[in-house]
Amino acid sequence: MIIGISDESHSHSLRKGTSEAPDRIRKISRTRDVYVENNKESLAYTNSGKAQSKIFDLGNISRENIPLVYERITYDGKVPITIGGDHSLTASIIQGLGNKRGPISLVYFDAHPDFLSSTRNFYGSVVYDCLPYIDPKSSVMIGIRSPELEEIENIQKYGITVFSPADIQYYGFKQVIEDILSKIGKNIYVSFDMDCIDPAFAPGVSVPVPMGLNPITASILLKSITQDGILGMDMMEVCPKFDIQDNTSHLASRMICELLSSVKVKPKLPNF
């Protein structure tokens, strides 16, 4: 289930415009990834050789409606795929899911740890704001390459495992995948900030950082981590105003399609 949240009210970035991302990603996906044959529409095939046709788009919701919407989705056994918006939205989503599923293994794709604790409730404190609902020991950060000292201290304090782009290049993604899968638990939530991708491939983000992941590596990691099922995923921080020929929006759409072609759905929760 696709959900858009057109909100960037908790962003401090000098680049504005992530609130435009949900509608832009949908538009570019429909323009570039939908084919019409015999008057029937279908999505493009993915790298797995599978097409993804059973997708329901709920449309856009407000930040305030996150708890109600995600509680209902969780009980219905659906996998919410959220398009933001600034990254602070993830904390509200995690809170809603964590209250129903128990401690979550957070897989956090980002150039930044977003682990500040001196300032709260904004796009730079996401992971710290999520701490009551996640299991830090079974959570991982991927693509990190621009941490602040306070964030490094919090990573060490809470024991979250970090894989930088240099780690993945040096050890190889097969070894990194094995390490990640041995670390994470069963209740997996994936948060994907598009700035984890190198700006050569994804220039349209709010805080670009050089020397990031390439799209193929990120896609393989994403699919390997999610193949046995996830609670949900979000795609954050696409900034269309700073994109080049909508390449970042298109890449975000393709990353979502790659995931949907292989992910399993968690079982529906019983009613009490």
Score class of each variant (00 low, 15 high):
Ser191Tyr: 09
Met233Thr: 10
Ser206Gly: 13
Gly172Pro: 02
Phe201Cys: 00
Ile142Glu: 04
Pro165Gly: 09
Gly232Leu: 14
Ile144Asn: 02
Lys137Thr: 12
Ser182Pro: 02
Ile220Gln: 13
Ile225Thr: 11
Gly172Ala: 08
Pro203Glu: 03
Val190Glu: 04
Val140Gln: 05
Ile188Gln: 08
Val190Leu: 14
Ile134Phe: 00
Gln175Ile: 04
Arg145Met: 01
Leu181Val: 15
Pro147Glu: 03
Ser206Phe: 01
Asn187Met: 07
Pro210Thr: 08
Leu222Val: 01
Ile230Tyr: 15
Pro208Trp: 05
Lys223Tyr: 04
Glu150His: 07
Val209Asp: 00
Pro136Gln: 08
Lys137Asp: 10
Met233Ala: 14
Gly212His: 02
Pro165Lys: 08
Ile177Leu: 08
Gln156Gly: 02
Ile197Val: 08
Ile160His: 07
Leu231Ile: 10
Val162Ala: 03
Ile197Thr: 04
Leu221Ile: 14
Glu151Ser: 06
Val140Tyr: 00
Gly232Trp: 13
Ala202Glu: 01
Ile142Gly: 07
Ile177Tyr: 06
Gly229Ile: 10
Thr217Pro: 01
Met141Arg: 05
Ile216Leu: 14
Ala166Tyr: 07
Val190Ala: 09
Leu181His: 13
Val209Gln: 00
Ile168His: 09
Lys137Phe: 07
Val162Ser: 00
Gln175Ala: 05
Tyr171Ser: 10
Met141Pro: 02
Val176Tyr: 05
Ser206Leu: 02
Phe201Asn: 00
Phe201Tyr: 13
Ile134Tyr: 02
Glu148Arg: 14
Tyr158Ile: 15
Asp135Glu: 09
Ala218Lys: 04
Ala202Leu: 09
Pro136Arg: 12
Ile160Arg: 06
Ile177Pro: 04
Asp195Glu: 07
Met211Phe: 03
Ser139Pro: 14
Gln156Glu: 13
Lys157Met: 09
Ser206Pro: 01
Gly185Asn: 14
Lys174Thr: 10
Ile144Ser: 03
Ile177Arg: 06
Ser224Gln: 15
Asp167Val: 02
Ile216Glu: 12
Ile230Phe: 15
Asp195Gly: 04
Ser182Tyr: 02
Pro136Gly: 11
Lys223Phe: 04
Asp179Phe: 01
Thr217Gln: 07
Ile155Arg: 07
Asn214Tyr: 05
Lys183Val: 11
Asp179Met: 12
Ala166Glu: 15
Tyr158His: 15
Val209Glu: 04
Val140His: 03
Gly143Thr: 00
Gln169Ser: 13
Leu181Gly: 14
Phe192Gln: 03
Ser182Cys: 12
Val205His: 00
Pro165Gln: 11
Leu213Thr: 02
Met194Arg: 02
Tyr158Cys: 15
Ile230Asn: 14
Ser146Gly: 10
Lys157Pro: 05
Leu231Met: 13
Ile177Thr: 14
Cys196Ile: 12
Ala202Met: 05
Ile155Thr: 11
Pro165His: 10
Phe192Lys: 06
Asp193Trp: 00
Ile155Met: 09
Cys196Val: 15
Gly204Trp: 05
Ile168Leu: 11
Asp193Ala: 03
Met194His: 09
Glu151Met: 08
Asp195Ala: 03
Ile220Val: 15
Ala166Thr: 06
Glu151Gly: 07
Asn154Lys: 11
Leu221Thr: 14
Met233Gly: 06
Val209Lys: 01
Ile152His: 10
Val205Met: 05
Lys157Asn: 07
Val205Asp: 07
Pro199Ile: 10
Ile160Leu: 10
Ile197Gly: 01
Lys183Ile: 11
Ser219Asp: 09
